[in-house]
Design a protein around this nucleic acid. Structure first.
Lengths: 338, 338
DNA sequence: GATTAGCACTCGACTTAAATGAGTGCTAAC
DNA sequence: GTTAGCACTCATTTAAGTCGAGTGCTAATC
């Protein structure tokens, strides 16, 4: 357990370091208005904090920087939740006033705003198909052997897939089948369409199409939801402005990871409801073990429908970002739910 | 006009510099198997080439590097078109054998392949709506005041837009109107839908809907094609591996430009049919005046339907990239046209 | 006249050494 | 318990010195 003074000193070091990215010395802490102790006293406390693992010294005779454990303590105990500046709140509110029409562009905008405000990298994972149901299914033929199957969900998401019509199946047959599926599958969760198709509806379709196998294969492909996740990113290059990432090859590793969609699907799939902070080596991916990731899920009626993430250096403005995400997910829910 | 020997030397310098990124000295040129002259002779020629503006010297006592003019001459006169390695051709062919189903993912794949093969940044601009016509138009209601309008083109592209149904208009009214538009506008170029709507069909819709003004406003929004361009990028971080971009702040400027969709719409809008090479300061955008951009348009029946670009340092493997793009656009056309 | 060998000269890149200064740890005094 | 004082540490900066790749010019050679 830390004394009040130790907490104060740890907090001061974290806050200073977050902005300066330079090791913090005892003298600069001592000079702060709210600190009434001499550098020597601070040094003693810093030494204790280091022994406890909250601080690190890059080398003898340098100041101290927070360790991952130090950041963790800071985030868990020293942060003032809901201290967002009015200005920032109103800039979020303004954004939602725009009432953009396309869900997709909307999330892209959310990501942009976040990366602009924070100067970190932001990632938004679209509302998951996971919790949506089928609203409408339709086939539209393009030419003799090609068509498009369109899937509309109850949240208004539209997925489409180009299909090649197998030889021997006529366009009207396909249309008939898709129409049947449309009426039978409406209201079903998107995620279970495939199962439903094979278990219950496969035989029924046999009546209408001779080349049953080919048709099912085509539909199998259409209902494959695994690749439908959509990821929106913004501020990926902001990493480059952080002094800790001035080494080009390090930053390339990070950027490559960031640009990989699968990364975010993996990282976000474990995100618990609400806000989570993952600091440094707490991250599974090696490339971002010098980074921290703050994720926030937004949900409607208890169903998580998407995730937003902010990736920055471990030296991150935790307090500000957490509060920002708190407000944003709040409004995002209102927006979708309206 | 350059002598044969000067051409040979310029070509050798460009080729060497492309791979080494270091100024090329007279001795290393002289040592090449195909060169039978001493360093002193090469030096004299190099001096002449510099005077003519084809070469530059970073500083006295350094070797020479090609100037933009030198690259331009190289690209215009010294390149052997259609010298692609068999291996590369077959890797392109293999890709197209996969016959991916979604046009969008397809182009993303093309971009990935290109950036993997070249280690530069590649950008693909999707088939432009510009040259497509309307295949199908549909309205699907999501709830009382929201719906989705789906636009399908003759190339199988699907665009969708979430709309808010204005107060006082019923869902059946909207459906009726969209159905009318569907039958009337089918076959029309996407780009002229808006004009057609306002000039010819507006009055007709008046018969069915009392709140004509609100409806038209909604449709105006739906048919706004200006924001529908889709850009696929790959290998954006490859820039970071190029020695000329080791300076983080320079590369950030470039990456920021690259990540801006509008950049590519602008750059590609001027791209002439076929392959075009833009070297260094020939680029309008300041941020990439140390880069070269090679664009290739692919077309069907004379209609340009998309553009592919490769962005790299001015020290770029022009010959290889040009040939690669030649083969690729060729196959891309066959693929779409099949 | 074209080519080449020889040589002095240039200049960035690298190496080494010294100076600087921010910051610590420890001890003794308050 | 707190603080002043002081010796010590060590990354960073600065300056000087060395190295070597490469040039330009001149005179000799083909």
């Amino acid at each position: 357990m830390l004394t009040e003074r130790q907490k104060m000193i740890l907090s001061a070091i974290v806050n200073d370091y977050i902005h300066s990215a330079e090791p913090i010395g005892s003298r600069s802490i001592s000079k702060r208005n709210d600190v009434g102790f001499s550098p020597a006293t601070i040094r003693n406390e810093m030494s204790d904090l280091e022994e406890m693992g909250f601080l690190e010294q890059p080398h003898t005779s340098a100041g101290r920087i927070p360790s991952h454990k130090g950041y963790r303590y800071f985030v868990d105990h020293l942060i003032n939740v809901s201290k967002t500046k009015n200005q920032e709140i109103s800039s979020i509110k303004n954004f939602f006033k725009k009432r953009l029409d396309r869900t997709e562009e909307n999330l892209q905008e959310v990501a942009s705003i976040l990366s602009d405000m924070t100067q970190y990298t932001s990632i938004a994972l679209g509302p998951e198909l996971f919790n949506t149901t089928l609203k409408h299914l339709q086939f539209i033929s393009i030419n003799d052997d090609t068509g498009v199957v369109i899937i509309v969900t109850d949240t208004g998401q539209v997925e489409n897939k180009k299909v090649h019509i197998p030889e021997g199946i006529s366009i009207t047959d396909i249309e008939k089948c898709i129409n049947i599926l449309n009426s039978r599958l409406r209201g079903e969760p998107i995620i279970s369409l495939k199962q439903k198709l094979f278990n219950e509806l496969g035989n029924e379709l046999k009546k209408y199409v001779s080349q049953h196998h080919e048709l099912m294969q085509m539909l199998d492909d259409v209902f494959d939801t695994s690749k439908q996740e959509r990821i929106y990113m913004s501020g990926t290059t902001n990493m480059l402005t952080q002094p800790e990432f001035k080494d080009v090859s390090t930053v390339k590793n990070i950027l490559d990871l960031i640009n990989e969609t699968q990364t975010w699907i993996n990282l976000f799939s474990n995100a618990p409801k609400g806000i989570q902070v993952t600091i440094g080596t707490e991250n599974n991916a090696k490339q971002i073990q010098d980074c921290s990731l703050i994720t926030a899920t937004y949900k409607i009626e208890g169903h998580s429908i998407g995730t937003i993430g902010i990736l920055g250096p471990t030296r991150m403005e935790y307090e500000r970002v957490i509060n920002l995400l708190n407000h944003l997910t709040d409004d995002l829910v209102k927006f979708y739910y309206r």
